[in-house]
Write a protein that binds this DNA or RNA. Structure first.
Length: 660
DNA sequence: AAGGTATGTCATACA
DNA sequence: TTTGTATGACATACC
């Protein structure tokens, strides 16, 4: 299947390898997870609006040579066509499509962002996958219960959920398959290789890197103009590497049970057998493709349907493996052209973000730490069906994808877990570690990496989960097969100190701080969103961060105001209580004063009457007479009866006046 | 363990 | 319609 994947279509051999330059490429659309469920399959990779017609296209020289050597017609693999064609052509659409392919593939079911989404019309337009689609069969075989139609372009959300489900099933199957693989009989070499895988992955990766670098050097020297002789020479010149001697011919026939599981890929194998002549030495072809799975027990490989690449590789029928011809050199050719993409794109005025993405791919290749990857994927390793170097987009895609899926398994849509875990995936697939991403333009991070690693999961808008659930799941999420040490390596103290949104933003490589996002004026905010190359997911997250951030401030202000109001009310209560006490004291004082006045009046009264004498010289009885003080200042001693009647008259008069 | 507090978030209403 | 604000309600972490 590697051959199937990596072989350029005949016309591309002609156009890209022999002629060294390709015609202006149509934008090849890539559906990362087509209905067939297998990315990279030809049926979801095709030029926009035009299905390549291998029959109508004239045969190139190399094709004729290949046929002359007895190599049957190699079925067109549109992924290769897409890769080689669009890259070599250097047209913006094609390059963008390439990035979309990388992004979409790495992101698993992602496909709604930038390249992925743009490529969706093409890929989505062919959701059914050809009847003979091997990947479709493989996917169905892999997880029969999962939905078959998954076109993660415009309606990618559902397919993303399916991806999560697939990942969940994938993990459990992985363990089972591992056990099954271990139980299968192995030939010594395979057992040895598998042991090597288990004991130390680093040498493998290093060996692969070495091989890749050699390939790259070789290819850089040869350029893009190839003849078949060049190709054969290239392949024959491949140095010894860890994969040597592990030709598929050495691999025993797949056990019946396993082969039965692969029966659904019959179409696929047919294509494969037709594609490769008896002169093709598949194991040599694999030399340039440091696929760990090749070192593993073939049963194990075939019984690991959880990883798309394993699907690709596992379907290789050793009986159909034909020695003699090594065609894997095309893969580095693709890579070589991919590496030239940046400069080529400059000429075509591509969006700078595309360059960043491409640089990221280069960065990922160059900064790759095999040891970390081997640790991070020690349980699901060796599925890098394609070379990390030469087909980094594909291979890394699978890594990240599977990694993300593992995160999805454990966390059930936990973005943060996924994020960190996906970072691992990104690390394994593309990046040595998240921090190393920083020296690349943020936009590339946001537009590419985040898209790659998380989109198919994050399109669930996982950050919309209840914060508690999100946090709790994140905190409690146990990375399957990963040690706490490794977990802490990426989810370190710094990460713990970050807020949730900060971690989310970091996970999606949003090139702005949360503070900026929140405090930015709306005009600047909108212009920023339009200026930067951000995926829908990133934009959504940014808007959510802004909304949450502003609401957070609002809530803080609200609580502050509420607290202020409460404090003010408490102050008012205290003041009123004090005022009440004061009034009480004043009242007491007034009553005292009144009593004193009454007492004085009483004394005065008695003093006056003690001095009064009537006409006969007798003392005036104070009970019969009263002292009346008039307004004119005169003082009269009148009988109380008159005072009483006079008071009544005055009172009545006053009442009348008040009524009037 | 229970209760209180602080904080974040969401939903909703409103400007 | 969009954006921001205010606030009740809820959940969670922490003490």
């Amino acid at each position: 299947l590697d051959l199937y994947l990596l072989l350029p279509p005949p016309t591309l051999l002609r156009d890209e390898l022999l002629l060294g330059s390709g015609p202006p490429s149509p934008a090849y659309a890539l559906d990362p997870f087509p209905a067939s469920g297998g990315w990279g399959h030809a049926d979801h990779l095709h030029p926009k609006g035009r299905e390549p017609d291998p029959v109508a296209e004239p045969e190139g020289q190399l094709l004729r040579e290949v046929r002359a050597l007895g190599v049957p017609f190699i079925p067109r693999t549109r992924v290769d066509a897409w890769l080689v064609h669009s890259v070599a052509a250097g047209d913006s659409d094609g390059a963008h499509g390439l990035l979309g392919a990388a992004a979409s593939s790495t992101g698993g079911a992602s496909g709604s962002a930038d390249g992925g989404s743009q490529a969706a019309p093409g890929g989505g337009g062919d959701p059914g996958a050809a009847p003979g689609s091997p990947l479709a069969a493989g996917e169905e075989e892999k997880s029969p219960a999962e939905p078959t139609a998954q076109v993660p372009d415009a309606s990618g959300r559902a397919s993303e959920e399916n991806e999560i489900l697939r990942a969940m099933g994938h993990s459990s199957q992985h363990e089972e398959n591992e056990q099954r693989a271990s139980s299968q009989k192995e030939n010594p070499l395979q057992r040895k290789n598998e042991d090597e895988n288990k004991i130390a992955d680093k040498p493998e990766w290093e060996a692969e890197k070495t091989t890749e670098s050699r390939n790259e050097r070789h290819l850089n020297g040869t350029g893009t103009s190839f003849s078949l002789e060049d190709l054969l020479q290239l392949l024959s010149s491949q140095p010894e590497n860890s994969l040597e001697g592990i030709s598929l011919g050495d691999i025993p026939p797949l056990p019946g049970s396993i082969n039965e599981g692969m029966n659904s890929s019959a179409h696929y194998n047919v294509n494969f057998s037709q594609a490769i002549s008896h002169d093709v030495n598949l194991h040599e072809a694999m030399l340039l493709c440091p696929d760990n799975t090749l070192r593993r027990d073939p049963v194990a490989r075939t019984s690991q349907p959880q990883e798309p690449f394993l699907q690709f590789n596992s379907h290789t029928n050793p009986e159909q493996t034909l020695p003699g011809t090594n065609l894997t050199g095309f893969l580095p050719v693709v890579d070589h052209q991919m590496r030239n993409l940046t400069s080529q794109d400059l000429l075509y005025g591509l969006d700078i973000n595309i360059f960043d993405e491409i640089n990221l791919m280069s960065l990922a290749t160059e900064g790759f730490d095999p040891m970390e990857l081997s640790h991070l994927f020690e349980e699901s390793d060796s599925d890098s069906g394609l070379s990390l170097n030469s087909s980094q987009n594909s291979t890394s895609v699978t890594k990240s994808n599977s990694s993300v899926c593992e995160g999805a398994i454990g966390s059930s849509n936990d973005l943060e877990s996924l994020s960190h875990h996906a970072l691992e995936g990104a690390v394994g697939g593309y990046y040595p570690e998240p921090s190393k991403l920083c020296h690349v333009d943020h936009r590339s991070d946001s537009g590419f990496h985040g898209d790659l690693a998380f989109q198919h999961i994050l399109h669930n808008h996982t950050y919309h989960l209840q914060p508690g659930a999100l946090e709790s799941t994140s905190e409690s999420f146990s990375w399957p097969g990963k040690s706490q040490k490794i977990r802490n390596r990426y989810f370190n103290e710094t990460d713990r100190n970050l807020s949730r949104d900060e971690r989310r933003a970091k996970a999606l490589h949003i090139p702005f701080t949360v503070d900026e996002i929140v405090r930015m004026p709306v005009d600047s905010f909108n212009s920023m969103l339009s200026k930067y190359y951000l995926t829908d997911l990133q934009v959504s997250l940014i808007r959510d961060i802004r909304r949450r951030g502003k609401n957070k401030v609002a809530a803080q202000n609200c609580r502050k105001r509420k607290l202020d109001i409460i404090l003010n009310l408490e102050d008012d209560v205290c003041n009123l209580k004090a005022k009440k006490e004061t009034l009480k004291r004043e009242r007491v004082q007034c009553n005292k004063a009144i009593n004193i006045m009454k007492q004085k009046l009483h004394y005065l009264y008695h003093d006056i009457f003690s001095r009064l004498r009537d006409e006969e010289g007798r003392p005036v009885n104070p009970n019969q007479y009263a002292v009346q003080c008039n307004h004119d200042g005169s003082v009269l001693i009148i009988p109380k009866e008159l005072v009483t009647s006079g008071h009544k008259k005055e009172n009545q008069k006053g009442k009348r006046e008040r009524r009037n």
